[in-house]
Design a protein around this nucleic acid. Structure first.
Lengths: 341, 341
DNA sequence: CTGTTAGCGCCTTCAC
DNA sequence: GTGAAGGCGCTAACAG
């Protein structure tokens, strides 16, 4: 493979095929008005020369690229990953391509800047519309369609699809309370994430509603990773009065927690019940099946794509804010508390 | 936020600032020949109007975008994820931006086509160069720099950085053999991946070298996930004569294997030794620390970026093929076999 | 059916 | 120091 700095242009193809550039353009864009033989000849030359039209030039002229952009902070969280998965699947159906920009989990404060910068850089130029996942910036300057997934503010001034984190947490807690648990530990996630905050609120609200006093010792804040889940659980287990159940703000933490519980010789669910949040793939087989709250993350990606494409095609949006419902998935990590307790 | 279809152009800025487009262009590109006051005025107008220059138009004119592309099949494998991480970190140092294209783990055969398509689409048009991770296609038609990470063929006709999978597997096996193990199970990965094949070869070669007959029952093929690691281990454990050690072709599989081992009441490393491959983050704390082979995946990303940027800047490449060394990381999942065995 | 023409938004000479 | 003009590769009229 040579890296000759001599890109083949539509002009080269035209000359080689003995036609005009517009004819080549027509072939490229599958226009009908081309003689079959001409079409084939041009096609052959394109093949031979290994020509590909320049996205840059094309988009500049036609103001339409059929490419949608995805801007996300971090590819390492399962949340983002699952959104990408959903977006990808949805994109494949439609006739669009996907370009992802990610800042590479650099947790610096300047992310909001780069986020905005990327939106302006791509949108309307190389991209017909953009999906921003858990945006940090509160506003974007783009004249082109933009949809956010799980933004920090509900009052965001752009269309968004959000997870019903609070409702989901309530459902999990309700279940645990229904099983008779009163002393329930909580393993939280990064406080800078909307989802983490909301789940914690759900935890607290349902306790309050059940007239159970909040015990700050029962709340351990991690960062949504398995490792901190493990460490937070250790702290919970070291408490003078151990919780009978643990609600982890995501599945990864829950898995870490189960690890910690198992390690000290206790069993899930016999000794301690555990509920997670997310319903990631692993959840289905960890410890015989983790009871968790499904928030249909990849569906959020799909919905975002649908909204965006509607916007791109100038179709009306039925809802500027789509709330993705959550669903409690009961598996094998919870157990009713014995009456003696 | 409004999506008015009226992108602000350099012309709008020029008019608003009462200067010509070329002056604005000069300001944009930090040219020296601009009066300080003019500079500031233009800058202010740009700010006010929220103007961002079009990547498309810019790249078309100047044939240089300072954007590099990353094409990868699948974002869900830890290998790819770690490469992305390394690339991201390296990119941040240099003055480049990164655009990722991923096919969204669709394992269909048409990936090679889309891969090539994307390379042509982006390269030289929107991208100054491209890194392809574990390419499926054997050749790419681009006149611009391209570097592959872990390609299938050694004989690839593009610069590449490859993992020394075979050497790494030998090291792991040597270690296990040195501990006295003779009956060693192997959990493989997807056979369509070069890395999986090489690690299996390493397993077989070292056995052969130690004059230990190959037992096909000891080789279970998974797909690099924790789940299949778990299932493969179950099969290994169900064997009439159980292996005393298991070499898993990646850490995820190893973790699944440990799960299976623990589940039937056996202990790692007391009853069975386990070695992984990759040294992913989790490896440091699973089961008190997983002994594994570090292949410095994110460094591979960094090296790829360095090679690519050299290529872009027309600097000579010292090596067209960079072999990333591997290193055995001894932790707590292996144990010397008692002499009685 | 096909060629000619006119820009898309920007950068780069070249004048002034 | 600044403006005017040309052209990057392409598509979309409009002619023929």
């Amino acid at each position: 493979m040579k890296f000759a700095k001599s890109p083949i242009t539509i002009q080269d193809v035209a000359t080689a095929a003995g036609v005009s550039v517009s004819t080549v353009s027509r072939v490229l864009n599958d226009k009908v008005d081309v003689a079959p033989e001409t079409f084939e000849k041009v096609q052959r030359v394109i093949e031979e020369l290994g020509y590909t039209s320049s996205l840059a030039a094309k988009s500049m002229r036609s103001r339409k690229t059929n490419v949608i952009g995805l801007v996300l902070h971090d590819l390492e969280q399962s949340f983002c990953l699952n959104v990408v998965r959903g977006v990808n699947r949805a994109i494949e159906q439609m006739d669009y391509d996907l370009l992802v920009y990610t800042g590479g989990n650099s947790r610096d404060r300047s992310w909001a800047v780069r986020e905005r910068q990327y939106v302006s850089l791509l949108n309307g130029s190389i991209t017909d519309g953009i999906i921003v996942v858990t945006p940090t910036a509160e506003t974007f300057s783009t004249h082109y369609p933009l949809v956010a997934v799980d933004p920090h503010l509900d009052s965001a001034d752009f269309p968004a699809v959000i997870a019903t984190n609070h409702v989901g947490a309530l459902a999990a807690m309700e279940y645990l309370l229904g099983l008779g648990h009163r002393r329930i530990g909580f393993i939280g996630g990064r406080p800078d994430l909307q989802s983490a905050v909301r789940r914690l609120q759900g935890y607290q609200d349902s306790l309050r509603q059940a007239n159970i006093p909040l015990d700050p010792d029962l709340i351990q804040i991690g960062d949504f990773t398995q490792e901190t889940g493990y460490r937070c659980a250790q702290k919970l287990l070291a408490l003078p009065v151990r919780p009978t159940a643990i609600f982890a703000a995501n599945d990864k933490s829950a898995i870490g927690a189960i690890e910690a519980i198992t390690e000290i010789g206790l069993k899930v669910p016999e000794d301690i019940s555990v509920v997670g949040f997310d319903n990631i793939e692993e959840a289905s087989f960890v410890n015989g099946g983790l009871t968790t709250v499904d928030q249909f993350i990849s569906d959020m990606g799909r919905v975002a794509v649908e909204m965006l494409i509607n916007l791109i095609q100038n179709q009306p949006l039925e809802n500027r804010l789509f709330r993705m419902p959550t669903k409690l998935i009961v598996r094998n990590t919870c157990r009713a508390l014995e009456p003696e307790n």
